[in-house]
Design a protein around this nucleic acid. Structure first.
Lengths: 229, 229
DNA sequence: GCATAACTGGACGAATACGTCCACTTTAGC
DNA sequence: GCTAAAGTGGACGTATTCGTCCAGTTATGC
């Protein structure tokens, strides 16, 4: 019945002055270093604004003035607003995954896991829970409005979940949790606990519920480990 | 630095023809049955639209035409858009809490809990995960933009969590889980698992991750129970 | 049956946002 | 040093949306 096509544009071929017809949100052939730098500056600025105000609350004029770029440049790099938002999703996604890989990739003990938890909670405490998870917020706002964006977000959550997958398998190899533990369920549960925790912290303006949600997931792992003894 | 005050209006006193000055989103003295019916029709329609399109994607003209009410009536019942959204939050919140109370209030065994889980997952499967949790989506979109709305949402999540609180205490009394279990942590963890599960289902267009997230929470309870034996 | 609440229906103004366009300037690559 | 990419800066058209207003109609309570 109702769909979100209102703000999305249909495919519209773009003919540049060089006569080459292009598709998608392609910004001409290839960029020089300078062009690439400007592009990333735009995306980074947009990401900041969107984190705070949301996609709907961020106008392109906001992005233009905040990134100190002229409007013509913004539209040379991005076809339209959805294209920019998708680029933002990619940037934010890379950042989050890189950060989590950094922390989760080397976790081998419960003490390590605890440090990961502390870092995550601490970072969120700095903003008193505001804005939630940068990925989660985007997912909530865009998943049902832009199928391309939804796919990207899905892949990102899958990547995050895979970090937990790897971690849990290490735990299995080390005998921290039993071999027959349902790794998929546990990894999913961890991602969900983190996301749900972010949301509760956001409405509470307090990180306590986020900490509790993650702690329950960790406690579950501990119990699983003990059950083997 | 940046706040979301852009779409919110400041307090603006309203003087009605009866000379009574009012505040908030008050729709005149009191409503007759007819007036109340129209008001609820507006809110219910708005809730439907917002669930599908989000707050930002729903215009007041959409609400007007979908609810078959004239614009002057909409503005007689609500001061402005945020006021309408707050009413939507209240309606949706009541619905969700009533539904959850219905299901959770009588849970006394793991089999009961499983039935609750199945119902929740099944309902979400009907829409293939789309739109997520009606409360969670609103929370994500409005928590940082409207402090009144955030407070309402906070209270609603707290009410939901209390249902788990009660449930867990019943479990304790029945000896299903130990007396010294951290009920607050568990209740929070359940709400977070549900919300995180909704989000993952939304980006996946598949309820499986939501089911897994909740299953992990239930599995944790089961393990807690076994630990006492 | 009268006063008042409830409502119609749409015109209207103001603001905002998206996206286009263009003449001109600056910067880099070879 | 020439050429093409990169960028400025803002005017502009179009569309949308919020919120106001009002003259006239219909229902309702007592």
């Amino acid at each position: 019945m109702v769909d979100g096509a209102k703000q999305l544009r249909l495919y519209r071929p773009v003919v540049h002055h060089n006569g080459v017809e292009e598709s998608q949100s392609a910004p001409a052939a290839q960029l020089t270093a300078r062009g690439a730098a400007t592009r990333s500056r735009i995306v980074a600025t947009a990401a900041d604004l969107i984190r705070v105000r949301g996609v709907g609350g961020t106008t392109l004029d906001d992005v233009v003035s905040a990134s100190k770029v002229s409007k013509s440049q913004l539209y040379r790099h991005f076809d339209d607003k959805p294209a920019l938002v998708r680029a933002v999703i990619e940037l934010v996604g890379e950042r989050v995954i890189a950060r989590e890989r950094e922390h989760l990739g080397s976790v081998k003990t419960f003490a390590d896991l605890q440090r990961w938890r502390d870092a995550l909670v601490e970072r969120n405490a700095l903003q008193e829970g505001r804005y939630g998870c940068s990925l989660g917020s985007l997912a909530n706002e865009f998943a049902d409005q832009d199928s391309v964006a939804r796919q990207k977000l899905h892949d990102l959550f899958a990547a995050w979940q895979e970090l937990f997958d790897d971690l849990l398998r290490r735990f299995q190899r080390e005998g921290v949790i039993p071999e027959d533990a349902d790794v998929y369920q546990l990894a999913t549960g961890f991602v969900a606990a983190v996301q749900g925790g972010y949301l509760l912290a956001q409405t509470s303006r307090d990180v306590t519920p986020m900490a509790s949600a993650i702690d329950m997931a960790i406690a579950h792992l501990r119990l699983l480990g003990r059950a083997t003894d």
